[in-house]
């Protein structure tokens, strides 16, 4: 770990003024990566005193979640449990109670990959593993290395690192809006535009400009009559990142699917909204055959590597079974 400065401002404006620094909230990703020398901030800007820790109803029937709302508080919030159950389920399937008590909504949007090569202290450095996320142009050791946990969707020839978040998968189907504030003022970013595909710049992971701070996440009004589910598949029953997960929100009328949102976790380089699956489902009969076709459509473009080919079949089962559960 490198020496770093530390400030703890009390207002959003003051925090944004510290643009040379890295924001720290729960620290569950950042501190871990600092210990591994993956993150080496000059200054930590502790934002825990900012007034961003509330969950409020919006006049349009939606919900505003402060960036500092802890995962556990969000998961157990009565409105979230009632109107956005998929989010509560996704949060509770992640990490451990201790981590969820620390981790924040904004921080989870910024969660970084568990790629074992990326997390090596010397990755991207001379003598270390190649890693384009750490040092653009250095290559990707995971491509032909041990890549069982790596992504099969949204990959590029430069990076196959999986986005690890559960919360974000639920946010994707809820079509959240992210509010940010920076040196140039406030703006909003649609959830689907927030995380970036690796392409040839895997070091750029999201749409934030330098100095911008996530302040709120807004959820739209809940979809009337919709059901939802979050299904997470992994090797063991708890405390593990997804090998494949699926978030579903759908409404069935007269046996046909009239509204549907599908997103996948554990298999893609970003929280993966599957428009392909949605297209295969919308207007169709809500039955196993339709679900299977949707799963095939979702994974049609999958590009497996040596150790992660099983994720294609696993994700198909995950989607199919999640749809079965959501329509049960």
């Amino acid at each position: 770990m490198q020496t770093f400065g530390y400030v703890k401002p009390t207002g959003v404006d003051k925090a944004i003024g510290q643009s040379a620094g890295n924001f720290i909230a729960g620290g569950t990703t950042l501190v871990d990566l600092m210990k591994l020398s993956v993150e080496q901030p000059k200054t930590l800007v502790d934002i825990n005193l900012l007034p961003l820790d509330k969950i409020e109803k919006l006049p349009n029937g939606g919900l505003r979640i402060g960036a500092l709302v802890r995962n556990s508080d969000l998961a157990w919030n009565a409105d979230v449990k009632k109107d956005y159950a998929v989010l509560s389920e996704a949060l509770l399937s992640g990490a451990s109670p201790q981590l969820r008590n620390m981790a924040t909504t904004g921080g989870n949007l910024m969660q970084r990959t568990r790629c074992m090569y990326f997390r090596e202290p010397s990755a991207g450095m001379p003598g270390g593993y190649a890693c384009n996320k750490r040092t653009p142009g250095s290559g990707c050791a995971a491509m032909d290395g041990f890549n069982r946990i790596h992504a099969v969707l949204g990959t590029s020839e430069h990076c196959i690192a999986t986005h690890p978040s559960d919360m974000c998968v639920a946010m994707a189907v809820l079509e959240a809006t992210i509010h940010v504030q920076g040196p140039n003022g406030k703006r909003t970013i649609a959830f689907e535009d927030f995380h970036k595909l690796p392409g040839d710049t895997p070091n750029i992971e999201n749409a934030l400009e330098p100095g911008e701070l996530i302040t709120f996440v807004d959820l739209p009004k809940p979809v009337a009559g919709a059901k939802s589910t979050y299904l997470k598949l992994r090797d063991r029953a708890s405390y593990e990142f997804a090998l494949s997960s699926a978030a579903i929100v759908l409404r069935v009328e007269g046996g046909h699917i009239r509204y549907v949102r599908v997103a996948l976790g554990g298999v893609a380089t970003k929280p993966w909204r599957s428009h392909e699956a949605e297209k295969a489902l919308l207007g169709k009969r809500a039955d196993l055959e339709t679900f299977r076709k949707a799963a095939e459509a979702a994974m049609a473009e999958a590009k497996p590597r040596k150790d992660n080919a099983f994720k294609v079949e696993l994700a198909k089962r995950c989607i199919t079974h999640a749809l079965t559960l959501a329509t049960a």
């Binding site: 568990r114 074992m116 290395g145 041990f146 946990i149 063991r236 029953a237 405390y239 593990e240």
Partner: peptide, 14 residues
């Protein structure tokens, strides 16, 4: 390469 408790899996209570 999986030398930590997130990547080397041991039995959890669950």
């Amino acid at each position: 390469i999986n030398g930590n408790f997130a990547d080397y899996l041991v039995t959890t209570c669950a």
